[in-house]
Amino acid sequence: MPTDSSTLCGLQSGERGQILSVEGSDAVAARLLEMGILPGEEIEMIGAAPMGDPIEFSVYGYRISLRRSEAARVRIEKQP
């Protein structure tokens, strides 16, 4: 399971990061961007569902759920 600290998968509950980029140019990437997962935005990991997947995040003032595979496409810089 990808837990690369440079993507959203690397965040633990309550940790924040700043979005750097969204990988790819397909419909999934487009949907993520439309939903406000934009470079420069701050994102917080809220918690994971039973079995660790999907994951709930807080971004752009609302809550969104992403699967690990989708979260792994969002590169971030972790914030203290």
Binding site: V28, R31, M35, P54, Y62, R63, S65, E70
Partner: peptide, 11 residues
């Protein structure tokens, strides 16, 4: 192909 799960969790 695997599916996606990009979903808003409204208040």
């Amino acid at each position: 192909e695997p599916s996606t799960f990009i979903m808003e969790l409204s208040s």
